[in-house]
């Protein structure tokens, strides 16, 4: 089973249970449709990072207060800001599916999330490879809304990267990204390699989460 199928099953809340044949087939069909219509687009740019005190960080001219992000970016002097989207047609397909079949919709929704994560992983790996040539290393990506990193910073990412124009990514008044299957994130660049696990899920202390990996 490939990674994105495994991830989809996890998002659907199956935990360690075996997944039924019908759902598996639905997952397969959903991926087929999604891959056909997704317009993957992304943009990234390197910015200087300045750590002011315990919880305060400054990226370009954006001030961020977040203990979690501060931990994630410890010892970093630069960051990559990046944004990625699967495009509006994915939203349309999910809306259309909702009208005819809710079971298919929840599956497709999970598949789209997995596809987006896969896309972000690819982008992150590309960044890592490029930086490694310069002897630099990356930290796992961290998005507004993770931990105490306020979702309100979505706005700064969109403005710094000019995402509406570059990749068609904007946000609503309530800071939701549109198209909905989109991500903004910061990736720390460090001179030293850390044993930081790229899989934040395993690091999480919560044990009763039904989405827990592994």
């Amino acid at each position: 089973m490939d990674v994105r199928t495994k991830e989809t099953i996890r998002y659907l809340g199956y935990g360690k249970h075996a997944v039924d044949e019908k759902t598996l087939q639905s997952i397969e069909e959903s991926f087929e449709e999604l891959v056909r219509i997704a317009e993957k687009k992304s943009i990234s740019q390197i910015f200087d990072l300045c750590v002011k005190d315990e919880n305060q960080l400054v990226i370009e001219n954006i001030e961020i207060f977040s203990r979690n992000l501060r931990t994630n970016l410890r010892d970093c002097k630069q960051v990559v800001l990046f944004a990625a989207t699967l495009g509006t047609d994915v939203d349309r397909l999910i809306r259309k599916t909702q009208v005819v079949d809710m079971a298919k919709t929840v599956v497709m929704q999970a598949c789209a999330a997995a596809l987006l994560e896969e896309f972000c992983d690819e982008l992150q790996n590309e960044v890592a490879e490029q930086l490694q040539k310069q002897g630099k290393y990356i930290r796992p990506r961290f998005s507004p809304g993770y931990g105490d990193f306020s979702i309100l910073h979505q706005k700064d990412f969109i403005s710094l990267l000019d995402t509406p124009k570059m990749i068609g990514l904007s946000m609503t008044e309530s800071y939701m990204l549109t198209p909905t299957k989109s991500v903004t994130a910061v990736i720390g660049i460090s001179e030293t390699q850390t044993d930081c696990d790229s899989n934040a899920c395993e690091n999480c202390k919560k044990t009763d989460c039904k989405y827990k990996r592994g």
Binding site: L12, G13, H17, V19, D20, K22, M102, A103, T105, V106
Partner: peptide
């Protein structure tokens, strides 16, 4: 009880 999952619940509903 955690033996049926959301996609199945909804397939039955449909």
């Amino acid at each position: 009880n955690g033996t049926v999952f959301l996609p199945q619940l909804l397939m039955s509903a449909e």
